[in-house]
Design a protein around this nucleic acid. Sequence first.
DNA 1: TTGTATGCGTTATCAT
DNA 2: ATGATAACGCATACAA
Lengths: 343, 343
Amino acid sequence: MKKETSAPTMKDVAREAGVALGTVSKVVNGLPVGDSYKVRVEDAIRKLNYQVNSYAQGLKANKTYTIALLVPNTIDPFYSSLVYYINIELLKRRYRMLLCTTDYNPQLEQEYIMMAQNNKVDGIIGLTYNPDLTVEENTPFVAIDRSMGPKIPCVACDNFAGGQLAAEKLAALGCKNVAFLRIGSALVNEPNKRKAGFENGCLSLGLSYECKILSDDDPYEEFERFLSEHIHNGKISFDGIFCVTDRLAYQVLNTLHKLHQRVPEDVQLIGFDGIRAFGSLDYRCSTIVQPVPEMAEMCVDLLLRENMMMKPPLVCLPVTYAYGGTTLEATYRTEESHAHRQS
Amino acid sequence: MKKETSAPTMKDVAREAGVALGTVSKVVNGLPVGDSYKVRVEDAIRKLNYQVNSYAQGLKANKTYTIALLVPNTIDPFYSSLVYYINIELLKRRYRMLLCTTDYNPQLEQEYIMMAQNNKVDGIIGLTYNPDLTVEENTPFVAIDRSMGPKIPCVACDNFAGGQLAAEKLAALGCKNVAFLRIGSALVNEPNKRKAGFENGCLSLGLSYECKILSDDDPYEEFERFLSEHIHNGKISFDGIFCVTDRLAYQVLNTLHKLHQRVPEDVQLIGFDGIRAFGSLDYRCSTIVQPVPEMAEMCVDLLLRENMMMKPPLVCLPVTYAYGGTTLEATYRTEESHAHRQS
DNA sequence: TTGTATGCGTTATCAT
DNA sequence: ATGATAACGCATACAA
């Protein structure tokens, strides 16, 4: 009764099949082996319900077929969809995912990376916020939404073009005087370009605009005050607002209702991210949609593709505009809302 | 230049510190060691940035400090919050999470379980739908929302009490004639008890009720037809509706608006799950809230606690009611909505 | 073509 | 208390 409880090993299979250890290994790995042996080994494998121990395998090969994904959490819908689509891409390539939620904790981010560093995982995909993050050169790393140096590829949507698109849409929908609302950390990252793109769009279209930017720990009430101050005689002075995220757009929408402003009749609203209700129902505001499935595929591709001439330092994937009820867009209305109901 | 690229090993540390391999192991594992040796080893560890290879560790100990979590996806907000809180609980215990999204695919569910079976992970937490799932006795397993036999603990919220609570709330809010709407698989699972609890509540309160139950692949339009049929002269005959999930409640809410019914004035609506907008903002309907953090903690506890006399076959955790704008609840209104804004 | 032996990084059991 | 050595499960170079 040596290893009653434990799982069967190659040695067990070899004994059962009456062959040598190496032969079993070859069968398992699809290397050429005599037909009669092959059958016997396969029978034994089935009989014992044997399965290779991938950790022992990894110990030999320095390869674990596991990658670590670092995200702040899986509560925010953008992060959860990222997790979901990256998981799908990894599954296609028979890789497993170690999920590391960091809660924006810089120290935890660093710890997870160190944990992954020593050949415990084959690579890391990280959406992180620690500006001082140290990542060794020899661990494949792909960053999302933030450039971490020339050697580390960064995948993001085309945030600049997204901001520009928002400006163009608002202009095309008749806006003359718009606002940009943003809340976010001081960290330099890709989503910051949304503002630049929006400003650029407004300028080239001759659209007058105003920006209100809050830092992470400012209370949301600041926005409420800002909006109130722009309401005179019960009428808001903006006819269009671009919010840096759908989440903010959602909060702003609630505030506008509280202030008795009608959306989209009095003021139109565009968000960013492309978040849907319950993950798969309708968009909850008109929005610039991030191509999350494509971003996921790109991350995994860049991480696992060997022998790439050079890893591009930054990959920007195209965004699209989607109607979500907070803009005047009669033509798209039925078609779009129908398309979004399913899936 | 033997292993230039690879991570430093215990052997490297031993050489660097001028001590034997076993001594390093002891220092790493906190076993008693001479002070002077200890210092030298720790210095070497720091210098080489050494970190134990937990896979080699696992190979010896048959323990990997990794558990697998099976969920259909991370898109649905209920699943994503489950993933999030389980991740937190595992982190507390220094365990890692292998995330397996199954997309409701019975075969994939079985594959993931087989993968986990052979000491690759220390245990499995699974929210699965395959009725024929095979799980070996020796792999610790905790099921969520579905009983998988007497030997496997199942963790769920108190679905029956939740249904009952919904009935009580509707009655207390003045409803006389209510409906229960459900969409779901034929699979026997815990959430099914929501209906029984609701019926039980209605009966004991003398509330007249009607049930409409769709199977998974029926189109949502069936509900729309059902509701239309109960509208006479522009007035709906129900004054209260209990939906089996917040997701369904959200869809029903949209439909009711389309049918020109006012919520909550004409008809009140209660959902189930406690889903918030963007994961952490306001509830989007009045709802029975599942205690997800507590469920997560219970899952991990049951999975990792050794030497438990007997694992309880079913653990039901208490639910609460939360106001979310689709019921008449003037008193709670300000207090609740304020509490939910943050966090 | 098949079997044997060695090593991957770690822990644990030995002598020393 | 410390150092050498075997073993965990697997892959592979080498011998048969």
